[in-house]
Amino acid sequence: MQELANLGTRRVRAGATANIQDAALWRWYADLMEDNRVACVRKDGVWSVWVDGRLLATDRSYDLSLRTAFVLQRALKAL
């Protein structure tokens, strides 16, 4: 029974973490859109995400393209 409670706790924590990450991603995206710094282009079924004129991510999934660009831009800023 304790294992079930632990699993439930882990699920709640994972959900909370995902919500925090999603909020950060969409704040980042909204800020870039407002400043005209991001371009999302779909060609031949593939999404490309450009930030400040630099191609950061391509994928068939819009969501995955944005998430990849988000992570890469943060990593580039840290350099």
Rank of each mutant, 00 (worst) to 15 (best):
M1R: 09
Q2A: 10
Q2F: 07
E3H: 11
E3P: 05
L4G: 08
L4N: 14
A5M: 09
N6C: 06
N6G: 03
L7A: 10
G8H: 10
T9M: 14
R11V: 09
V12W: 01
V12G: 03
R13M: 12
R13D: 10
G15V: 03
G15A: 10
T17F: 09
T17E: 15
A18Q: 13
N19T: 13
I20W: 06
D22E: 15
A23V: 07
L25R: 14
L25S: 06
R27A: 07
W28Q: 02
Y29Q: 04
Y29C: 06
L32D: 00
E34A: 12
D35R: 11
N36G: 06
R37D: 07
R37E: 11
R37N: 04
V38W: 03
C40V: 13
V41I: 12
R42A: 04
K43G: 05
V46Q: 12
S48V: 01
S48M: 06
V49G: 02
W50R: 02
W50F: 09
V51D: 00
D52I: 02
G53M: 08
G53L: 05
G53E: 06
R54E: 12
L55D: 02
L56C: 06
L56T: 04
D59Q: 06
D59Y: 00
D59K: 06
R60T: 14
S61K: 02
S61H: 04
Y62W: 15
L64M: 14
S65V: 08
S65Y: 00
S65N: 00
L66D: 02
L66Q: 10
T68H: 09
A69M: 04
F70P: 00
Q73H: 08
L76N: 13
K77F: 07
K77S: 13
A78G: 04
L79N: 13
